[in-house]
Design a protein around this nucleic acid. Structure first.
Length: 146
RNA sequence: UUAGUAGAUCGUUCUAUCGCUUUUUAAAGAGGAAAGUCCGGGCAACUUAGAGCACCAAGCUUCUGAAAUAGGAGAUAUCUGUGAAGGUAUAGAUCAGGCAGAAGAAAAUAACCGUCCCGAUUUAUCGGGAUAAGGGUGAGAAGGUGAGGUAAGAGCUCACCAGUCAGGCAAGUGAUUGUUUGAGCUGUGUCUCUCUUGGGUUGAAAGACCAUGUAUAUCCAAAAUCUGCGUAGCAGAGCAAGGCUGCUCGCUUUGUAUUCGAAAGAAUAUUUUGGAGGGGUAGGUCGCUAGAGACUUUGAGUAAUCAAAGUUCAAGAUAAAUGAUAGAAAUUUAGCAUUUGCUAAAUACAGGACCCGGCUUAUAGAUCUACUAACUUU
RNA sequence: GCCCCCAUAGUUCAAGGGAUAGAAUAGCAGUUUCCUAAACUGUAGAUCCAGGUUCGAGUCCUGGUGGGGGCA
């Protein structure tokens, strides 16, 4: 509650920023990039998430995100959908953290969020953990490009 | 009132902010099972000269249905339940064939014990025969009870009862039921077998279309070991074949290989370069949502269902949308308090993936109809 | 999404519907040895779950549960 309220204030205070959307072109879809992503195998782990990422050169600063939950751990399709929706929602609300870092660079970052936990955590934990993940990913990309 | 049985229905609602998918830019956006993928169909591709056998499935009657291991209404037998009800089975062969562990004398043309007769002698045993009334076993033991009959017995005979088969009469569309006549016809289960009906295979990752890059079938043209200088040839290196020789080193000739030819050359094959070019990978588009549709009313029918009239149709994603947060209300449960409030908790099973019809399984809670049992009151 | 297969001792595998479900190995106890190993003897341990058919199911039928594989 606290968090969403904060985000809302952030938007109101800086109206020139782009909207917090998460449309079709921001999703990770192509099979070949996913394959190469898992071959490179750059991993960041913060329980209950795992993040696999890769960078490419591109005309604009651009980010592609995919989301995944194992069928082994959660058998019911309802639970899997629920987790994926929450992950997408949390990414959508916090994605400015990453976009700020790569504003001036022509890079395409594509990464995949994988849920590794055994049970469903409450919404606040989702939010804080995904924030941590995005901040750490931004730092790593900064170092590599400088 | 409590506990049940059968059938039918619903399966949280509203507001605000930030988003997602489709597209007509203004709307719409997940179920009764969307699930399991157990049946059946549409649709698509493949195979297609026709027929039969094999194989698989179903098997009481009748109606419905596009069809079905589907549904409705019934029939008979049997099991469960006090009951309302529910489960299961039911084509044919009294006359085809096989099998039935252990137990038991014996599991089907029955003689172990027993009963009876005859003979023998060692006088309490042996041998030969007759006999299914009695005996333990077992899921199942040669229809049951009584009388006659007999050496002893036996459907051997008779009466009654139960069943089977065949015929008649009555009821019913029919399965079947009731009644009557006749035949001494009478063990249980299961499989093979016979008959009738149906079935080609694979599933939207089916299939159709567009097509960048890379490689390449095919066609056309040119060239023929490699490197350097450089476009005339030269130099160097290496390789293959032939010759000299018994063999190696070495020397020498030719230059893509094979065949034809005296030769020039021709044909075929291989490789390279350039051009044309088909299939087709990544990716994309279609298939892809108006259908054996849904709802309401009326009529027919016990019902499944059918007919007519009217109204209405706005999910179409593809690493895969339909959400998140906050607030309010509703329902249930528990506690406090006490008949109306407060507090807390909970609100099931579960998420479309081409579309329909069924079946099966999961499911908090709520509602309606009919019926049953028990208790109470009148 | 569609299609197929499997489930038996701790593990790897057997078992035509028929008596108390078998073998190897691992476990435990004992014998042997100064001790250990090897060897020998004994012992305990199991049909994924729920219904049905049958006189009788590990096996046959139905429905669930779990695991594995294939189709680009």
């Amino acid at each position: 509650m606290e968090c969403t309220f904060g985000c809302f204030l952030y938007i109101m205070s800086t109206p020139n920023q782009p909207k917090l959307t998460f449309g079709k072109n921001e999703r990770l879809k192509s099979r070949s990039t996913i394959d190469s992503l898992f071959i490179q195998n750059n991993i960041i782990r913060i329980y209950p998430f795992k993040l696999v990422w890769i960078t490419n050169e591109f005309d604009l600063p651009h980010i592609e995100v995919g989301v995944s939950v194992s069928k082994r751990i959660f058998k019911a399709a309802v639970k899997r959908n629920f987790i994926k929706r929450r992950m997408r929602e949390c990414y959508r609300l916090n994605k400015m953290l990453l976009y700020k870092k790569i504003e001036s660079k022509n890079i395409k970052i594509s990464f995949m969020l994988i849920y590794v936990g055994n049970n469903i955590l409450p919404y606040n934990e989702f939010n804080t953990k995904i924030k941590q993940l995005l901040i750490r990913l931004g730092d790593i990309i900064d170092k590599e490009n400088d």
